[in-house]
């Protein structure tokens, strides 16, 4: 028994090293003075300075943040609706279809999603004159479509774990469907809605393939700029950028975990 758990712990620890070693290396080398990534030239913040002086990266980052914010906000509304319908509504014609449409974007290869949306936009422009050209709005539509699937899945799984008696009680006390949702159900699923928003935001911020298909000229998002830089080789500025992004995520996740722990402890005390 002991020997087996030793084996298990060793392999699992190696798995964690595999997960984290490349990121740690990236962070360390972002402080490297030397331009040659492998030669250690001493600690320096040089590449962070270069990063903030690079207008192309800054502009692309601002555009990406804008797109991610709008996409996540729209996706969270549509995804919550879809998740709610799938878990709380009785059978209706098309429910299976909706379930399929919601889960398919999760596994759909990005090249297919990107190409098909681009061709749709081109066909729509030919038929109705909208969208005129491609740019920010077409990227947002594309991102909403694949992000809402993630939101729907998260919300649906949260709703299925939820005790339905609270909602039933509100219904018995005469709550209208809309107030039932906004006053009872929504507060209960709020953690899922928030994590759905955050996930949508990061996925939108990260998307290269779909955005490349549906964006127009002069609308390069951050991943598109990173990709064109990185394709030619390792770039110290990208190391600095990656470190900043890893730092933000690490702080965010740590804060969320701390909050969750505190809530769990509070609940324990009450119980």
């Amino acid at each position: 028994m002991k020997r087996r758990s030793l084996f298990l712990n060793t392999t699992a620890t190696m798995g964690f090293i595999f997960l984290y070693a490349p990121m740690i290396a990236l962070v360390v080398y972002s402080f490297n003075k030397s331009k040659l990534v492998t030669v250690w030239g001493g600690w320096s913040l040089k590449w962070y300075g270069e990063l903030f002086r690079n207008d192309q990266i800054i502009d692309a980052a601002l555009l990406s943040f804008k797109i991610a914010f709008i996409s996540a906000s729209v996706a969270v509304v549509l995804g919550t609706m879809a998740g709610f319908v799938l878990s709380r509504f009785r059978r209706f014609r098309g429910k299976m279809l909706l379930a399929g449409w919601v889960s398919a974007p999760l596994v759909m290869p990005e090249v297919i999603t990107g190409l098909s949306l681009l061709l749709l936009f081109v066909a729509m422009e030919g038929a109705f004159g909208w969208p005129a050209g491609r740019g920010t709005s077409t990227i947002i539509i594309a991102h909403v479509t694949f992000c809402m699937a993630y939101v729907a899945v998260i919300v649906q799984s949260r709703l299925s774990q939820l005790d339905e008696t609270l909602e039933e009680a509100a219904m018995d006390l005469g709550a209208k469907p809309s107030s039932l949702f906004f006053l009872v159900t929504l507060p209960l699923i709020m953690p899922a809605v928030i994590s759905g928003w955050l996930l949508s935001f990061t996925m939108s911020l990260d998307d290269l393939v779909i955005a490349s298909f549906v964006s127009g000229p002069g609308n390069s998002t951050l991943p598109m700029v990173i990709f064109s830089k990185v394709r030619l080789g390792v770039s110290p500025e990208v190391n600095a950028l990656a470190t900043l992004m890893i730092a933000v995520v690490a702080i965010g996740v740590t804060a969320a975990m701390y909050q969750m722990r505190r809530q769990a402890k509070l609940l324990e005390k009450q119980g």
Binding site: Y20, P22, M23, D206
Partner: peptide, 25 residues
């Protein structure tokens, strides 16, 4: 809970940058 979030944490950072990290390796 800690181990689970250690698995999920990389998922929240950029996919593109995680692939890029391996180029340097």
């Amino acid at each position: 809970a800690l181990l689970l979030s250690l698995v999920i944490l990389p998922f929240w950072t950029s996919f593109l940058l995680r692939v890029y990290a391996w180029m340097g390796f």
